[in-house]
Design a protein around this nucleic acid. Structure first.
Lengths: 206, 206
DNA sequence: GTCTATAGGCCGATAGAC
DNA sequence: GTCTATCGGCCTATAGAC
């Protein structure tokens, strides 16, 4: 678990095969349930080749999973400098973010990060920094802009951001993380986003 | 994973030794990292004795962990029939619940439930039903009472409850689940609870 | 670099004595 | 019920040929 893994692009094809196979398996089954045999088999290489590229299972796991928090659903177009309709802007951000959080791939990464954060403390930290914190900082910076423009009243932009993100996750994300059926459907997502925006606006809109 | 485990009380001392040892180990290290050898050693019994009481590792794990969501921090005294100071009542509930959620024991259970919900779907479901949903239902029932008394305006009590609980968890619970330092301190807990109550009141207070 | 083959250890689970 | 001793298998990791 040194985390200093060379980037998986610009590498030998074998290495990429291995990385892709390992990613799929780890995300699907977690650290403990995946064997190096299964990784080698899925990648179509021998175990010796696998170990030639990754010194140990720990290194493989850390390298694969640490980067996966970097997907960021919030592109800059969601944070315009001039906002004519604040409610609409927040709804767009909320829809994008919540739908991203509820994707099965995202949930797998979250589960892995939480599950193995005890054994690999750096993993939980890397995930939080690359994922939630990045969204958080982006949103908070936008809030400061809106505050300066007098559109919102948020003396503590970071706290207001945390509240918006928490309202978005709400019960749907908790339930989905635990795999509790039914999986949140369109109606629940829309309702969660809408009421999150509504509640947040009552607290912070000018 | 049949879940039909006899209650651990009213059992032979050996069985309780095993259950306690298994609980401690599973909560600390997760399913995969705990061996039946280590459970037997920690319990001070042989593996044969262990298997005499629990047919398999799965059964042992399921029985131990499923019950652990049942701890409920919200006793009835926190939900008075007559509320003179709504803000103070919400603050008391929030303080109690958030401090419970951030206890290391609670976090361990949450991590296990999320981590193993893929392998043991019933585990995630049992945890959610015994834990979050119970708090949720209790709070929602109280909200209906307050609505009838005209103290709050919450046409959808369940949604309002989910929002209150989400605002409480906020970033502190996410970070703590991931083991990201620093662990939330007194100041952050107080600030989170206070601002959660404030935001919620602006949305739902009469 | 990549393979086959295997070392060496730990795992879950069981047999048999008491 | 409880123990000691052990089976058969799968695991991580490596040695040696090509």
């Amino acid at each position: 678990m040194d985390g200093a893994l060379p980037p998986s692009h610009e590498c030998s094809p074998k290495r990429r095969q291995i990385a892709q196979a390992a990613e799929a398996l780890f995300l699907a089954h977690g650290y403990g349930a995946v064997s190096m045999d299964s990784v080698a088999r899925q990648a179509g290489v021998s175990k010796a080749t696998l170990y030639a590229h990754f010194a140990s299972k720990d290194v493989l796991f850390a390298g694969i999973v640490c980067d996966k928090g970097e997907d960021n659903p919030l592109d800059d177009s969601l944070f315009p400098d001039r906002v004519t309709d604040l409610r609409a802007a927040l709804l767009a951000i909320g829809q994008r973010l919540l739908r991203f959080l509820l994707r099965e791939r995202t949930l797998s990464i979250v589960r892995i990060a939480i599950a193995e954060s005890v054994r690999f403390p750096e993993l939980g930290h890397a995930f939080y920094t690359n994922g939630p914190q990045r969204s958080c900082d982006r949103f908070a910076a936008w809030l400061e802009l809106l505050s300066a423009q007098g559109q919102v009243h948020a003396p503590d932009p970071l706290a207001a951001t945390h509240q918006f993100l928490a309202l978005l996750r709400s019960d749907a994300f908790l339930r989905a993380s635990l795999g509790v059926p039914p999986a949140p459907g369109e109606a629940e997502i829309d309702a969660t986003v809408t009421s999150a925006v509504e509640t947040w606006l009552r607290a912070f809109a000018r």
